[in-house]
C-alpha cells in the first residue's frame, strides 16, 4: 500500500534526477501532487464504507497511512504553489486566496488537513480521547469537499476527471449519511441505556 501510494512521488523524483519533468515542470509537479493528494484522501475515506460492506476489519490499518500520504502530497502541492507560483510572498498568496475561490478552496482543504496529520498518532488519540479525536477528525469531510471543488475550478472546460472525483466523494459521504440515519432510527432507544461502543484504539469516522 505504501509503495503504491509512493508511485507518483517516485515518478517525480525520477524526473528531478534525470532533469526532465515535462515541458512545464511546475505544472507537472502541481498536477501530479494535487491529483495524488485528492486520490489518496478519497481512498482514506473509502476505508470505512469498504470495511462495513466487506466486514474486512484489517482495512482500518491502512486508513492512517492513506491519510498521511494524502497530506504528504498536499504539502508538496502547496509548496509548489508557494515557491514557484507566488515566490514565497505572503502578500501575493493572501491576494490570490482572497481573489480566487479555487485557491481559497484548496487552501481551506490544506489547512483542515494540518491538525488531522498532527493528531494522527496513538499518543494524540489517547490524549484527546476517542470521542473528541473523532469529532476533530470529522474535518476530513469538509477538507475533501473543498479539495474536489478546488479540482473542479482548476480545470478548463473538460471537467470529466473532477466530476468523477465529486461523484466518488458523494457516494462515500452519502453512505455515511444513510448509515448514520439508519443507526439513529434503530439505536435511538438503545442509545439511552448505553453509550456507543467506541474504543480509543479504533476510532471510526
Amino acid at each position: 500500500m505504501l509503495l503504491l501510494a509512493l508511485i507518483p512521488a517516485l515518478k517525480l523524483a525520477r524526473g528531478v534526477a534525470i532533469g526532465y519533468l515535462g515541458i512545464d515542470p511546475v505544472e507537472t509537479l502541481a498536477i501530479t501532487t494535487g491529483t495524488a493528494a485528492i486520490t489518496l484522501l478519497l481512498c482514506s475515506l473509502a476505508v470505512t464504507p469498504l470495511r462495513r460492506l466487506t466486514g474486512w476489519n484489517e482495512l482500518i490499518r491502512f486508513r492512517r497511512l492513506l491519510g498521511l500520504m494524502a497530506f504528504f502530497y498536499a504539502v508538496l502541492h502547496v509548496s509548489t504553489y508557494v515557491v514557484f507560483d507566488q515566490e514565497g510572498s505572503l502578500s501575493l498568496i493572501a491576494a490570490d486566496v482572497y481573489e480566487h475561490p479555487w485557491v481559497l478552496f484548496g487552501m481551506m482543504a490544506f489547512l483542515m488537513l494540518i491538525p488531522l496529520a498532527l493528531t494522527s498518532t496513538k499518543g494524540w488519540i489517547r490524549r484527546l480521547g476517542g470521542k473528541r479525536w473523532n469529532r476533530l477528525h470529522r474535518l476530513v469531510y469538509p477538507a475533501a469537499i473543498f479539495a474536489v471543488l478546488h479540482f473542479l475550478l482548476a480545470v478548463k472546460l473538460d471537467v470529466r476527471k473532477p466530476v468523477l472525483y465529486i461523484v466518488v466523494l458523494a457516494v462515500l459521504l452519502g453512505t455515511r449519511v444513510v448509515w448514520a440515519r439508519r443507526r439513529a432510527a434503530t439505536q435511538a432507544p438503545a442509545a439511552r441505556q448505553r453509550p456507543a461502543p467506541l474504543t480509543a484504539a479504533e476510532p471510526g469516522n
Binding site: I23, D24, F84, D85, E87, D96, E99, H100, P101, W102
Partner: peptide, 15 residues
Amino acid sequence: RWSQKRERRIGELFR
C-alpha cells in the same frame, strides 16, 4: 477563476 497578472514563460520556473 484565476489571475492574469503574471505568467509562466515556458522553460522558466518562476512567474
